[in-house]
């Protein structure tokens, strides 16, 4: 039984009274503890797909039809208040630019503790220890000092680890990572990916990883879905995608990957 089942999802943008389709007929399944990579170029609809899962859509966009079944419930039918309980606790997100998603005027410790208190219902002291322990697990040095630092004082890589810590604070069943390492250096990227894998093995969650970088996909995916112009054009196990791609767009991506994605 799949953890997440997206059935025939259609999302449109509303501009000047006109409705422009962004994603059409998207079907996607993720099993427990599986890593599914959603790959495609910019504008292919991968981010919108991931945001639609918990109805985190930007202002002018709307789900026109489809279902998103998570642990037996259709998330799209839930009210905002009910969805809030799912977001963060059951389904967590990690985005590309950690610095813009972390509040610049609160300390790292403050933000971490807020998430912990909100979802685990413990008091401040307990939250503090949990937060420090989380930071330690992300292999950040001097976690105590970091608790009192602000996002702008840390590098992109460090902030991404903090963000990861925040997302995992509540032991979600599904982690959605949208281009989490695109803005980072290649050495930092390798570390973040290693960390992600460690957490996944230890805590046990499903991972929906969005990227345009096929070499990255190859390193972490169990299965890959290729998106192109708002549709899923191919879906296969990671080895099959690389050895026997069927859709012309997949083949084009692989051609590019051979040229510049592979050493």
């Amino acid at each position: 039984m799949a953890l997440l089942q997206i059935k025939n999802l259609n999302v449109s943008f509303l501009i000047n009274g006109e409705s422009l389709p962004v994603i059409s007929g998207v079907n996607l399944n993720i099993g427990e503890n599986e890593t599914l990579v959603l790959a495609g170029e910019s504008g292919s609809g991968k981010t919108i797909t991931s945001l639609s899962i918990t109805k985190l859509l930007p202002k002018n966009s709307v789900v026109t039809s489809g279902e998103v079944h998570f642990l037996g419930t259709d998330l799209l039918q839930l009210k905002e208040s009910e969805l809030c309980r799912v977001r963060g606790a059951e389904i967590a997100y990690v985005f590309q630019e950690p610095t813009s998603f972390l509040n610049p005027i609160f300390t790292i410790g403050n933000q971490l503790m807020e998430v912990i208190i909100l979802h685990q219902g413990v008091d401040r002291d307990a939250a503090y220890s949990i937060a420090v322990e989380l930071l330690r697990q992300t292999k950040l040095s001097s976690p105590e000092r970091l608790m009192h630092s602000y996002p702008h004082q840390l590098s992109g890589g460090m902030n991404q680890r903090v963000f990861l810590a925040m997302s995992l604070a509540c032991r979600p069943r599904l982690l959605i990572a949208d281009e989490p390492t695109t803005a980072l250096d290649v050495t930092v990227e390798a570390e973040i990916l290693r960390l992600l894998k460690e957490f996944k093995d230890k805590l046990g969650f499903a991972l929906l990883f969005i990227t345009h970088n096929l070499s990255l996909a190859r390193k972490i995916a169990d299965r890959i879905c290729i998106m192109y112009q708002g549709r899923i054009v191919e879906e296969a196990g990671v080895n099959d995608i690389f050895t026997a791609p069927r859709h012309p767009h997949t083949q084009k991506l692989l051609w590019a990957y051979e040229k510049i994605g592979r050493l």
């Binding site: 170029e41 910019s42 345009h212 970088n213 096929l214 084009k252 991506l253 051609w255 590019a256 990957y257 040229k259 510049i260 994605g261």
Partner: peptide, 15 residues
Amino acid sequence: PISSLDLTVQAEMLD
């Protein structure tokens, strides 16, 4: 020169 472009465009531009 090609880092901010899509993968397939990167490959084309490099050629």
